[in-house]
Design a protein around this nucleic acid. Structure first.
Length: 368
DNA sequence: AGCGTTACGGTTGAT
DNA sequence: GCATCAACCGTAACG
């Protein structure tokens, strides 16, 4: 199955077709951008296609999250049994009613809201297929679902309050948290705080490091060694639509974890950052019907997050790089300095700290 | 050269 | 369990 680990792109970077880049790399992309590094340079350094860098950065700007979107799953049905029941009732009450009228009534009666109301064509189909003879309600409806508040079908994991701040300036945050303290950990279940601090990021040097996560469980056993975790597939999936709260907290599932195996990036230096990522999955609002558009006003009310990361990374000094390969010799074409400000004028200043904020995410999981 | 976009081949996961 | 299928992914390539 997953033997096919990864493929190598034109830049020499490793990726797994169809799967999101590891959070560690996504994070790195955002961090570097916040430092003022141009996207094209980020692409080269991390060996990630520019299209991908562009996408990740764009998403971060608008949602505040570095996490990939929710993969898989199905959209919740809008024509729940409860909705069908109402449609039937309306039809029974007025056999000549038009589908669009039914639609309006569903909204008026708050059976549905604008995000999940069935389309006129869906209503027509229901009338045709399920309610042929209205005379007898066979109802077998169990309506178990609680549609009352359907509005946000998927979980929203939250989103960060502020979108893109480039150097917000402020607080620098604590910088290092050094070692130990949490032990593995995963997230407690509940929400939690968000920790926004990241690992390191202060210097560029770290920046090149790629590795990160080690979270939980085992994974990566030797941390230092990079790699060998036999687990594969897990890493971060932080996505997926989950629904109710109950588990969602886990939207994260396995999260990050091993970035390695599949991706062993050849990076040469690795810092051990442990980073974690913050994150979120997507704007909740945007997933299916729900969305609120750009300004839309819908914002999700709650966010759940998870937070925390457990760093632990140990500092092993060198983590083994495998082979020495290297991928990236510093490729900066231009000295960084040049690069950095290039945008000019921007009042912005110097980026020095990397982002300060991101949201924390958590990971949980434990091996399953 | 840089970067937004998108076709493509791929995976995932709720139904 | 298996099959659907829509959602997402990153790369490569186009503009």
């Amino acid at each position: 199955m997953e033997q096919a680990y990864g493929e190598v792109n034109q830049l020499g970077g490793v990726f797994v077709n169809g799967r999101p880049l590891p959070n560690a790399i996504r994070l790195r992309i955002v961090e570097l951008a916040q430092l003022g590094i141009r996207p094209c340079d980020i692409s080269r350094q991390l060996r990630v296609s520019h299209g991908c860098v562009s996408k990740i950065l764009a998403r971060y700007n608008e949602t505040g999250s570095i996490l990939p979107g929710a993969i898989g799953g199905s959209k919740p049905r809008v024509t729940t049994p409860n909705v069908v029941k109402h449609i039937r009732d309306y039809k029974n009450g007025d056999p000549g009613i038009f589908a669009w009228e039914i639609r309006d009534r569903l909204l008026a009666d708050s059976v549905c809201d604008k995000y999940n109301v069935p389309s006129v064509s869906s209503i027509s189909r229901i009338l045709r297929n399920k309610i042929g003879n209205l005379s007898q309600p066979g109802h077998y409806e169990n309506h178990k679902q609680p549609p009352p508040q359907p509005a946000l079908p998927y979980n929203h994991i939250y989103q960060y309050p502020y979108p893109n701040p480039m150097s917000p300036g402020g607080t620098k945050m604590s910088s290092h948290h050094h070692h130990h303290h949490h032990s593995g950990v995963a997230v407690p279940a509940g929400h939690v705080s968000i920790s926004r601090s990241w690992p390191s990021a202060h210097s560029v040097s770290n920046i090149l490091g790629i590795r990160t996560f080690m979270e939980q469980t085992g994974t990566i056993a030797g941390t230092d060694s990079s790699a060998y975790t036999p687990k594969m597939e897990d890493w971060a999936n932080v996505n997926r639509p989950s629904f109710s709260a109950s588990q969602n907290i886990n939207g994260i599932e396995k999260t990050a974890v091993d970035a390695d195996i599949k991706y062993s990036q050849p990076a040469s230096s690795l810092s051990s950052v442990s980073s974690f990522v913050p994150a979120c999955a997507y704007p909740s609002s945007n997933q299916y019907g729900v969305y609120g558009g750009p300004g839309g006003g819908y914002v999700t009310p709650a966010h759940h997050w998870q937070a925390q990361g457990s760093p632990l990374a140990h500092h092993g000094p060198s983590v083994t790089v495998r082979g020495g390969d290297i991928a990236a010799p510093m490729t900066f074409k231009h000295p960084v300095r040049e690069v950095v400000n290039r945008k000019a004028a921007s009042p912005v200043d110097k980026p020095q700290e990397a982002l300060d904020n991101l949201h924390g995410l958590s990971i949980s999981a434990s091996s399953s």
